[in-house]
């Protein structure tokens, strides 16, 4: 009867905070943003920063290859069984927002196969400024843009920039070379986002992914509280 129960009920509800056996499932954080802004690099850096303290896994959603998953494998940021690639039929935003079934399957399979996890990072394939994650798939989302994509992106807004739980403006080291005004990006972001947090980071700097990792730790503390 106990076993029976474990396959009924909760498995049908995607956003349920518990696994079928009643334990709390992993916190799921989505990372989205335009092509090449540094999502995979941020995921890799987060894995390196957190893997010693936390049990982690990653799901990637590439547009047409397994490139992101393969990069993470090559960099050996996690053992291979902790990295899953979801195929998205040329529409990554559909797979993270409108029809999340393949991604839900991936996150649930990771926890079924590896045992309870603390955190699963879900990277969306590079998409446009309107791509956001469904609340049925992730508990919080990070939107990653970069200074080289134009310093007017925060001003333009859009659902990713405006509503993500954390906005990351990446590659600040490149600002002098592409003529981006960091102060203006920060001010525009503040204008669009009100009290929602913004991190300006360069993964090439010493501080690296530190601030984002601290934000993830805080979310996790709130999740397990």
């Amino acid at each position: 009867m106990h076993l029976d129960h474990s396959h009924d009920g909760p498995a049908a509800v995607s956003a349920d905070a518990h696994r079928p056996d009643g334990t709390r499932r992993a916190l799921r954080i989505g990372l989205g943003g335009p092509v090449g802004s540094g999502k995979t690099a941020t995921v890799a850096a987060l894995c390196r920063a957190l893997r010693d303290q936390l049990s982690l896994a990653v799901v990637t959603n590439d547009i047409y290859t397994r490139e992101d998953a393969e990069f993470l494998l090559r960099e050996a940021v996690l053992p291979p069984e902790r990295i899953t690639a979801v195929e998205t039929g040329a529409c990554p935003h559909t797979a993270i927002r409108d029809d999340i079934s393949a991604n839900l399957e991936a996150v649930e399979d990771l926890e079924d196969d590896l045992g309870p996890l603390d955190l699963i990072l879900v990277e969306s394939g590079g998409d446009n400024l309107t791509a956001t994650f469904s609340k049925g798939l992730v508990d919080a989302q990070v939107f990653v843009i970069d200074v080289a994509g134009g310093d007017d992106i925060p001003r333009k807004g859009g659902p990713g920039v405006t509503t993500a739980d954390l906005l990351v403006v990446n590659k600040t080291d490149l600002a002098p070379y592409v003529g981006s005004d960091l102060a203006r990006m920060a001010a525009d972001a503040k204008e669009q986002r009100g009290d929602l947090p913004v991190v300006l980071q360069s993964l090439r700097s010493e501080a690296g992914v530190g601030e984002v990792a601290a934000w993830v730790r805080a979310r996790l503390a709130a999740w397990t509280a």
Partner: peptide, 12 residues
């Protein structure tokens, strides 16, 4: 076609 059952990722 928007029934969320994963079909969008398959081309048949």
């Amino acid at each position: 076609g928007r029934f969320p059952a994963g079909g969008h990722a398959h081309s048949g």
